[in-house]
Design a protein around this nucleic acid. Structure first.
Lengths: 182, 182
DNA sequence: TTCGCCATGTAATACGTTACATGATTGG
DNA sequence: CCAATCATGTAACGTATTACATGGCGAA
């Protein structure tokens, strides 16, 4: 899967592994996540498979960089992936909900404390996403007309992040109330 | 992680790997998922680590069964896990949203077809969860008074499933409309 | 001078998925 | 008789995570 994300970003422009990691963290982080170790090793493999090529740039003064770009085979692989529609739902793995499932015998206040902490985290995420709506995406869209259509799609994914976090906070509020009443 | 789920289920009562898989699929499937291969191998490991013990029951006529039960060490490990509150958000990996992020250059109708299909899947899940509210959990709760408190927590996790699927379908509806207008 | 950022990588381990493999019983 | 369900397991592979490892630059 990470392979297609890397192909997807490199399809916009040549980048280093480091830049891909930054871009990933600032664009798709609310629905995908990867460590730099995985990115670097996958890029290497992809080069062995001729999906990308890299150019090593020795930085005078600056750090060295390895800039990757797509080959035609890479571009083809990316398109093939995009053209095969998903026919299943992504499996969800949510540790908090799992813990709550088994929490009947736990101390009520410990459970509440855990939920309050999660509420804070999710509220913070929500605010972060709400701040992004006006900002980053709009800039990209308006400065580069080529990306105007992309920006519409990026925003739809951001809206999912917002809907998700709103739903999460609301569920936490209801659940906290319910446990307090026990 | 799967280890704690197995400990959690065995904390209710001794079970076979097969029964754990069934229980898992009918109770926590909307926020966790595991293959039988992983369950069987993990149970074996856990026995080597003395967290569980198994009794092999040769079924006359019926299939053989291996019934696992918790040891004191297993119960302790489970409690320790529950007592350490989560301090981070679970990372989300949602392939559909990822695909949408990169879908600006795709054929509009292909994207729409993919979203319609997902809408169907999520609506179906939602209906499934709504059907469960009245049914399965209530039964367990009323027949075994020991589990009354547990049932409250199980229902809170089911409510998360319902909220999640509702949110997902609503987001899909908005997104489909938006793409149709393009 | 210390912290954070830029920048790259490897190694070991842990976890998850797919495929292979077997075999009895029950219901349509 | 065929499909589904019960029931267990292993092997191979693929993916993800943590830890180890290095080093320069700029700002506070």
């Amino acid at each position: 899967m990470i392979k297609y994300i890397l192909l997807g970003f490199l399809n916009y422009q040549p980048m280093t592994g480091y830049e891909i990691k930054q871009t990933l963290d600032h664009s798709v982080s609310h629905f995908w996540h990867a460590y730099h170790s995985q990115i670097y090793t996958t890029l290497r493999q992809m080069e062995a498979d001729a999906l990308v090529v890299s150019e090593f740039i020795h930085g005078e003064g600056q750090p060295d960089r390895r800039v990757y770009s797509l080959t035609d085979a890479g571009r083809a692989e990316f398109t093939t992936w995009l053209d095969q529609a998903l026919t299943e739902m992504s499996p969800v793995k949510e540790e908090l909900i799992l813990r709550l499932f088994f929490s009947a015998r736990r101390d009520k206040n410990s459970v509440l404390a855990e939920l309050y902490l999660q509420r804070e985290l999710h509220q913070k995420k929500l605010n972060e996403y709400l701040g992004m709506t006006a900002g980053e995406i709009e800039e990209n869209a308006k400065s580069i007309p080529e990306l105007a259509r992309d920006a519409i799609f990026w925003k739809m994914t951001l809206n999912m992040g917002i809907s998700y976090e709103k739903m999460y906070v609301e569920w936490l509020d209801r659940t906290i109330q319910e446990i307090e009443r026990l």
